[in-house]
Design a protein around this nucleic acid. Structure first.
Lengths: 215, 215
DNA sequence: TTGGATGGTGAAAATATTTTCACTAAATCG
DNA sequence: CGATTTAGTGAAAATATTTTCACCATCCAA
């Protein structure tokens, strides 16, 4: 029995949800007001009443922080919506079929980086092993969000992650004359060419996002 | 670094945990008192202070329901916070003192990108407004994790985000001869120089991470 | 046996937070 | 057009909640 939310109401709803996820408790009216740029708590109050009437939250009148989102009631459900992707360990190249085995860790990734509702179960995180794509802004050590797909479904010149030798590399993928070409974007690196079944080369899939921590 | 809990302290701890689990927010002192049969909120207050001193919870002095259990072994302890940072809206340059007002949205960021336990409350997300730092792998549209600090505390040649005119830009920061120099890393852009109080230039702080979604 | 830590009572003070009131302005709808 | 919804401002009132103060009792270790 939910009405549709106005843009403003949605902003309030999303803020409450983000706040709850971060602080494990609901915000006060003042905190909502600050976040949305509303100077009067009454402005916030009315937004909340509208949200309540439309069935998006329940209030506990009189109680401090007496809010309670209905959709995603459980704080653990909230964290579930933010996928945690396995980080490929350095030993993965020994058995590229089992990239998810013994992950080096997990990285929380905002759904913003999973376009078109990409299935999180098909995604992985890998660390770029060289500067071969520095010309396109991918540096050694960057974390790459990789969608795992069969390499035959890739488009030509798609930006991919692959395991070559002991390293996980970002490259442009080209398939011609029954050969996989991995093209760097840095003059000091050379294009590499492999037959499709070369055990020393495993193309994982396209790179969907790049994350870099700066010193 | 935890002391042992007395029976009474443990009862309080367990009640808080159960309450949090059920209501998705911490209880008030009165509610704890009712549950444990303590008539004075001060009795509860002292229990909480003891729990805090022993490292079992954190308090947020002055805030209603300002409690927060710590123990990370406990699935309901809720400590491993995955912060949700506000994304600076495009209209922020009109009032750079209130960057958090009316955020364009929120981005969940893995704690991995907050070095040395950087306080999430001092961090923001901004979108790079040009390609002025493409030479260092930051492109227009990239999401920047910015630590908000007073510009006088910056080191020379530090990579910073700043609001110049209508745009949020990444640049190298240099302060000499009482002038702020913003240096690009792309030959087609020019260094810009501002007096420290120029209203058209607001240096937000150093860039701690870069996130890019690929097409 | 004295002194600190613990665990209280009860009341009052100080804040935090919600709620109400009066008023404005824009957008929407029948 | 006029009525309704939405989204505010600003101030004040009403409560909820935290914090402090004075005081008491018990237990335990030095």
């Amino acid at each position: 029995m939910k009405g549709r939310l106005t843009a403003r109401q949605n902003e309030a709803y999303e803020f409450i949800r983000a706040y709850q996820r971060r602080h494990h408790k609901p915000p006060t009216l003042q905190e909502i007001g600050e976040a949305l740029g509303i100077r009067s708590t009454n402005g916030v109050f009315k937004l909340l009443r509208a949200l309540e009437k439309k069935g998006y939250l329940r209030r506990d009148p009189g109680a401090a922080r007496g809010l309670h989102l209905l959709d995603s009631d459980d704080p653990f459900a909230l964290t579930d919506e933010v996928p945690s992707l396995p980080v490929i360990s350095r030993t993965a190249s020994h058995e590229p079929e089992r990239l998810r085995a013994r992950p080096a860790g997990f990285l929380t990734v905002d759904p913003f980086f999973l376009p078109r509702g990409l299935d999180p179960d098909t995604c992985l995180i890998g660390r770029a092993g060289d500067d071969g794509m520095s010309g396109e802004g991918i540096f050694k050590g960057d974390l790459l969000l990789i969608e795992e797909v069969p390499w035959r479904t890739l488009n030509s010149r798609e930006l991919v992650a692959c395991l070559v030798g002991e390293l996980l590399l970002a490259r442009r993928f080209v398939f011609v004359n029954n050969r996989i070409h991995l093209q760097p974007a840095n003059r000091t690196y050379l294009e590499e060419v492999f037959p499709p079944d070369d055990p020393g080369c495993h193309v994982i899939g396209p790179i969907r996002a790049v994350f870099r921590r700066l010193p």
